[in-house]
């Protein structure tokens, strides 16, 4: 076991890493601002500097880069932690945050709102969030219909629900006006933080934070759930309640993440694995580490997304492009034996 001092240092690193990446990302972007100019804006905003600054400088640093980086961090942390939790819950290191169809459901909800409400952001969030949760509830009802082997039934429920919503998304894409709605749907489905504003942050940060805190709080229970239903119950766990609660928190954070940033793949799969490689599989440590790495990772990838070209590369594309080869490397390194 770690000594108290070591624990404190460890905790400090966990918290500081995402904060540092957020800070760094304030300096990165297409708009030409010197380090000094960015620092001046920060000094001005925190009341250390009195200055008459160009409004665009303030907006770039404070209203564009900062909310975007914060949102990226929360979204990354949420996706990573729900991925890690589902991996424990389903006793399978290869499952990801959308195993129960939350992304497919949210994608459908968002596409529907784009068509019905002319892409009005509020409705897009609302529908994405609602349908994301709805999809999980549906998987869950299918999964718990038979009481014998709930885990496998849950996975099957997820497969069914994902299939239904994916085909519904295709149907909507088919119906959508190819010149007005289709591009928005495609853009949304690929994921982006480009539209991040403080309003979006307020809307989505609450469910994501509740989800993350909930999973942190019950992280030891995730260890026990990963022993399988029989053993976990024999160890004194109320399986149904504990599992439902874990799924509830994980869904809350994933659905909210997906509804502000679109479908960002691979974070929920790859990040927990990096965590496992670094600190092992004990969820007591793994869960906070996943949040920290996930948050930093997404902010970094988003920095790439908005600087590589004049415009925005959708995040989902980059996370998959970076995530997939990295995953192959991990598998090769461990020869498929786990960490």
């Amino acid at each position: 076991m770690l000594t108290t001092m070591k624990k404190k240092i460890f905790l400090a690193i966990l918290i500081l890493t995402p904060l540092l990446t957020i800070f760094i990302s304030l300096f990165i972007g297409r708009y030409p601002l010197t380090v000094g100019e960015v620092l001046t804006v920060l000094g001005y905003k925190f009341g250390f500097v009195e200055a008459d600054l160009p409004l665009n400088n303030i907006n770039v640093v404070w209203n564009i880069r900062l909310p975007r980086a914060i949102l990226g961090a929360i979204v990354g942390g949420s996706l990573a932690v729900s991925g890690a939790s589902y991996q424990g819950l389903f006793r399978n290191p290869l499952v990801s945050s959308d195993i129960l169809g939350v992304c497919a459901g949210a994608g459908f909800g968002a596409s529907l709102a784009i068509i019905l409400f002319q892409s009005q952001p509020f409705f897009v969030y609302l529908f994405a969030f609602g349908f994301g949760i709805g999809a999980v509830v549906l998987s869950y009802l299918i999964g718990f219909h038979y009481h014998t082997t709930p885990t496998i039934m849950l996975v099957l429920g997820g497969v069914i629900v994902k299939a239904i919503f994916s085909s519904l998304i295709s149907l909507l894409k088919y119906i959508a006006d190819p010149y007005e709605h289709l591009p928005s749907i495609v853009f949304w489905l690929m994921g982006s933080l480009a539209t991040a504003r403080y309003e979006d942050l307020l809307l989505a940060a609450l469910p994501m934070t509740i989800g993350m805190i909930g999973l942190i709080a019950m992280r030891w229970r995730l260890n026990i759930l990963s022993m399988g239903d029989k053993e976990a119950q024999a160890l004194g766990i109320n399986i149904f309640f504990t599992k439902s609660l874990a799924i509830f928190f994980a869904t809350l954070s994933t659905a909210a993440a997906v509804c502000v940033s679109g479908v960002i793949g691979w974070v929920g799969l790859v990040i927990p694995h990096i965590g496992r490689m670094l600190v092992g599989n004990n969820n007591i440590v793994l869960i906070p580490v996943s949040i920290s790495i996930g948050a930093s990772y997404l902010v970094l990838v988003d920095n790439l997304a908005r600087t590589l070209t004049g415009s925005e590369i959708p995040l989902g594309i980059l996370t998959s492009l970076i995530g997939a080869p990295f995953f192959i490397y991990l598998l090769k390194k461990t020869k498929g034996r786990g960490w």
Partner: peptide, 22 residues
Amino acid sequence: NAELELIGNDYYCSLEQVLMWD
């Protein structure tokens, strides 16, 4: 005259780019 991102049939630019154009 700018480099734009093609998504589907449409072209997009980034917000910081718009700010740079001012």
